[in-house]
Simulated assay, not measured.
Amino acid sequence: MIQDHLLTLMPPSIELNTGEDPLDATRNILLDDEWAREVGRQDRMPTVRVWRHAPVRGLVVSKRDVAGPKGEAAMATMDRLGWPILVRPTGGTAVPHGPGVLNFSLLFPRTKDKVTTDAYYQLLCQPMLDWFTSMGLVATTGAVPGSYCDGNYNVLVDGKKVVGTAQAWRGGLAGTKSRHPGYVLAHACIVVDVDMMEATDVINRFYEEVGDPYRVDASTSTSLADALNKVQPGQTYSAATAQKDFVTFLERYYRSAGIAVHVRS
């Protein structure tokens, strides 16, 4: 469960939203920033979003990864290879996306509380840890050298990465009186059913194209479907099923913590 010191960061009322564009992958990514700006202006309730990419596979990268002529050339090459590049507003390195990936975003207003990025990462990761545990999986957070988009707040199952996380803070304190009302966008990319050997090869090819020595190792990661299959042999698990399961879990989870939850799609 969410620890008491983190509960103070949770708004008393949230929107739990599964809204997504079924055709436009770029639009799906940009919705996080668009809705978060509305949250900062108080035009939208603080939002927890559980969403899937449009059914096209590719890589999501930061703006830094594709800066300059080499980045533009690499994007064209990856597009020809059938792995188009999409750019996200948060930092970090490349992550796979597509129909086998589920995304989890916290879109919250900036507050006066003295708070660290670590606290928001914990607020993001704890529900996933508890969800995985409820499935009979052994889940933790931590860095895994050699994994894609590595960081201290990867979510791991049996020591292998299943979830990558990223975070962005924008503007100042939220509210209608602020000239640039701010928000916190904390995001998780849950690999539900992806061939990580292939995805790793593609990530490495991308960084080769941009002239970056960064490389990842496929043995450091797994998918949620593969992890579940070890505890429930013969189990199949799709991102669509995971989305339904996780939304049901989150609705109970947040309400049990005393938070009002409004489910929308």
Rank of each mutant, 00 (worst) to 15 (best):
M1N: 11
Q3M: 12
L7Y: 07
P11K: 12
P12Q: 12
S13L: 10
S13D: 14
N17L: 11
G19V: 10
D21H: 07
D21Q: 09
P22A: 06
P22K: 00
D24I: 00
R27V: 10
I29R: 12
L30R: 15
G40H: 15
R41M: 09
M45F: 14
M45W: 10
T47Y: 04
V48M: 09
A54E: 04
R57V: 07
R57I: 01
G58K: 02
V61Q: 02
V61N: 02
K63M: 03
D65R: 00
V66T: 13
V66F: 00
P69Q: 01
K70E: 09
A76R: 10
R80F: 10
P84E: 04
R88L: 00
T90P: 03
P96S: 01
H97C: 10
V101N: 01
F108N: 02
R110F: 05
K114N: 10
T116S: 07
T117V: 13
A119V: 03
C125F: 05
Q126V: 13
P127Q: 02
P127R: 00
F132P: 15
V138M: 13
G142P: 14
P145N: 04
N152H: 12
Y153C: 08
V155F: 12
L156Y: 07
L156M: 04
V157T: 08
D158L: 08
T165D: 00
A166G: 11
A168P: 02
R170K: 14
R170C: 03
G171P: 11
G172D: 11
L173K: 04
A174V: 15
A174S: 15
G175L: 11
T176S: 15
H180A: 15
P181I: 10
P181A: 08
P181D: 10
A188M: 04
C189V: 14
V192R: 09
V192K: 04
D193F: 13
V194K: 02
D195S: 12
D195L: 12
D195K: 07
T200A: 06
V202W: 10
N204W: 09
V210Q: 03
G211W: 06
R215Q: 12
V216G: 05
S221D: 09
S223L: 11
L228H: 07
L228T: 05
P233N: 01
P233F: 05
G234N: 05
Q235A: 15
A239N: 01
Q243N: 02
V247S: 05
T248V: 04
F249G: 08
R252A: 13
Y254S: 08
Y254V: 06
Y254R: 06
A260E: 15
R264A: 13
